[in-house]
């Protein structure tokens, strides 16, 4: 059976280190697939103007395109070029919850993420996405510094 490692990217350089670590793991495991995931932070419970609602579908498509073309596809291509089996997923939602949900859906056995940098007050109040992920994930999580 192929082992799946989920790599959570956030568009910063810590993602690169997460990928590097996952590659090491994959080499050690042998038959391994790498799943590159980017979650666009989004909540269904925000308040919007009617106009924002009308444009929402268009914006969503743009966000998905941008995240796929700028972040996920380059990472997947680089992994494939290096000889790894890899695929990419982009989805909207709460970062920690969605990363975990995708991992469970896809049958991933562990998650690798970079240490994220949430800003001051928000971090103090709600914790960072990484903290939330570590607390609530259904599989082992590795946080790369």
């Amino acid at each position: 059976m192929t082992t799946k490692i989920v790599i959570g990217l956030d568009g910063t350089e810590t993602g690169e280190r997460a990928i590097a670590f996952a590659k090491e793991q994959a080499k050690l495991i042998g038959t391994c697939e790498l799943l590159v995931v980017y979650v666009i932070e989004w909540s269904p419970y925000t308040f919007q103007t009617p106009e924002e609602n009308a444009l929402r579908h268009k914006r969503r498509e743009e966000e998905l395109d941008l995240a796929t073309s700028r972040i996920v596809t380059p990472a997947v291509d680089a992994l494939k070029a290096a000889g790894f089996k890899a695929q990419g997923i982009v989805r909207h939602g709460d970062v920690a919850e969605t990363l975990n949900a995708i991992t469970v859906e896809e049958g991933g056995s562990q998650i690798v993420v970079g240490r994220s940098s949430a800003d001051g007050i928000k971090k103090r109040l709600f914790g960072s996405s990484t903290q939330n992920l570590v607390m609530h994930a259904d599989v082992p999580v590795t946080v790369v510094n």
Binding site: I40, P44, Y45, F47, R56, E63, L64, H92, T98
Partner: peptide, 9 residues
């Protein structure tokens, strides 16, 4: 996810 939710509407 990412589309206008029922709550938002």
């Amino acid at each position: 996810a990412g589309e206008v939710s029922h709550f938002q509407a």
